[in-house]
Design a protein around this nucleic acid. Structure first.
Lengths: 161, 161
DNA sequence: GCTGAAAGATCACGCAG
DNA sequence: CTGCGTGATCTTTCAGC
């Protein structure tokens, strides 16, 4: 994933400072015009477009989307669920089981006592309960441990530095 | 946040099916043209734009961004950290402390044994350790419990239903 | 990086439920 | 009275060079 740049400095997929500046701008406002972005980072509009296209081809930019307020769409309740699985459960098993539940917005295998951690968004507490029940019913799940989110303090897709 | 609609049915900030369809399209590709979105949802381009503007004013749409591959930017390591705080620690205290660390991409107070759960993105394991140390050094933090992410299975901003 | 042709955004206006 | 569609105009994109 990471390659060695000309000067011998470790750089990830060859992103220079201009690429990073462009991405910063796009994270802020992905509908800004190329001319506007170019002005901020010191490039012409076509140059910005070429770099954005290249970043998309390289996979650094995976697409453009909209920042939505979950509450406005009715997703007012969220929970984190630790999954304790039996002996030989593969990440793939967990992935397929979890993929059947659209309410699971994030899932990963982790170190520690639990095997996986899920992040669930639901419409209300009853809905959360239903999702947890459905997941707990999977044959490889031994036990679950849930934490309801009381208040969200931070939510950004990436570190802002 | 939620208001009562004409017929007495509970609707969140008055989003109808067309608004939801438009948001679905924008989540998929926020750089799609209004004409293209209009074609998919059965509206003209100006009508789509008007609705998008209105959704932004209402706060349902908070902005447009780019989906970035964290690994491409060097954020290859992630961890979840449970925070155990002393007696009377307010969410605001946690928020301000956590805000000093850009590596914390998500933070919330939760039910259960721990008081808060943080999601950290870092460049490597040493970096994770540094961030945890810095947070653990906060005066109100009694103890932390960390889980390193082994492999990410799911990562979407919102439920896809 | 610049330029020109093609495409999209945006606005005012007229019209329907 | 709110909301959609149409057509004119202005801006942006994008492929030459």
């Amino acid at each position: 994933m990471c390659a060695r740049a000309g000067r011998g400095i470790q750089v990830c997929v060859e992103l220079d400072q201009l690429d990073r500046a462009i991405i910063r701008e796009l994270v802020e406002d992905a509908r800004a015009t190329y001319a506007e972005i170019g002005q901020r980072v010191g490039l012409s509009a076509p140059a910005v477009k070429r770099r954005v296209d290249r970043l998309q081809e390289k996979g650094a930019i995976k697409g453009f989307t909209v920042r939505v307020d979950p509450a406005a769409l009715g997703w007012t309740t969220e929970a984190y669920v630790e999954l304790f699985c039996r002996g030989k459960t593969s990440p793939a098993d967990i992935a397929t089981a979890v993929a059947r539940n659209p309410e699971v917005v994030s899932a990963c295998t982790i170190t520690g006592e639990a095997d996986a951690l899920l992040h669930i968004r639901a419409t209300d507490m009853r809905h959360v309960e239903q999702v947890i029940e459905r997941i707990a019913a999977e044959e490889f799940v031994v036990r679950t441990k849930s934490s309801i989110v009381l208040s969200r303090l931070v939510d950004t897709p990436l570190p802002t530095s």
